[in-house]
Amino acid sequence: MEALVSILIGVMTASAVYLLLRTHTFPVILGLSLLGYAVNVFLFASGRLQLDSAPLVEHGLKQLPDPLPQALVLTAIVIGFGMTAFLVVLALRALGALGGDRVDEGEES
């Protein structure tokens, strides 16, 4: 299972990095979102993988997972949404002000 999760994090990162390097705002936004997922899963995984449990005490569960990365990632997910929204609106504002959705102006392709 560890190998599977590692590979998934890697695939998400690779796709995200490729998207980050595109010429238009839209794929860059997608790339950042995707990178956010990858980072969140990575952080979450730093608490190691634990099946069939939950970070709840006094619920008769044995082998509780590490709650700290979960708490960190929970806020990271919400903040990630805030950041994506910010970028989307920034892209729209750029579209309104500059009339285009390219990341860079007039650079070589």
Partner: peptide, 14 residues
């Protein structure tokens, strides 16, 4: 670059 980054992160994660 993307593939290298992905592989690197995967290795690190593992």
């Amino acid at each position: 670059l993307a593939a290298a980054a992905g592989i690197g992160i995967a290795v690190l994660s593992y």
